[in-house]
């Protein structure tokens, strides 16, 4: 058993070693000539016109949270959709129960007008 993990150990040592050596080589051998253009943040070739440290509307965070929630729903739905034919009716019932709970959550956030932007 333990021998099986030996290649993984070698692999991780090589990966860490390679990454470190690249970084160190760039640090010691690479020339460094700074200029204004080089130090600017890159914005798709357009000249930056604003500071990147801006305040975001707090709703963005809420949207992101809800995205994760319904993303996870998909994670559960896909394996269920692939295998539910082999399982009994209970599997169908259970998944709809799960969707029902999530649906109530969705109704709640809709009623709380989380998606209204004003």
């Amino acid at each position: 058993m333990k021998e099986n993990y030996f290649p993984i150990l070698i692999y991780s040592i090589v990966v860490i070693g390679l990454a470190l050596s690249f970084l160190m080589m760039a640090q010691y051998f690479g020339p460094r000539r700074k200029s204004k253009q080089k130090l600017e943040p890159y914005e798709c070739g357009v000249e930056p016109f604003d500071s990147h440290r801006r305040k975001f509307h707090v709703k963005f965070y809420l949207i992101a949270t809800f995205f994760i929630l319904f993303d996870i729903e998909t994670v559960f739905l896909i394996p269920w959709a692939v295998t539910f034919k082999e399982m009994s009716m209970i599997a169908v019932f259970e998944m709809f129960f799960f969707l029902f709970i999530l649906g109530i959550g969705l109704i709640y956030i809709l009623k709380k007008r989380v998606f209204d932007w004003d």
Binding site: I104, I107, Y108, K112
Partner: peptide, 14 residues
């Protein structure tokens, strides 16, 4: 507990 918890949420919303 699940049912009543969800119901209370809906009560609050509606």
């Amino acid at each position: 507990l699940t049912g009543v918890g969800l119901l209370v949420l809906l009560v609050e919303a509606f």
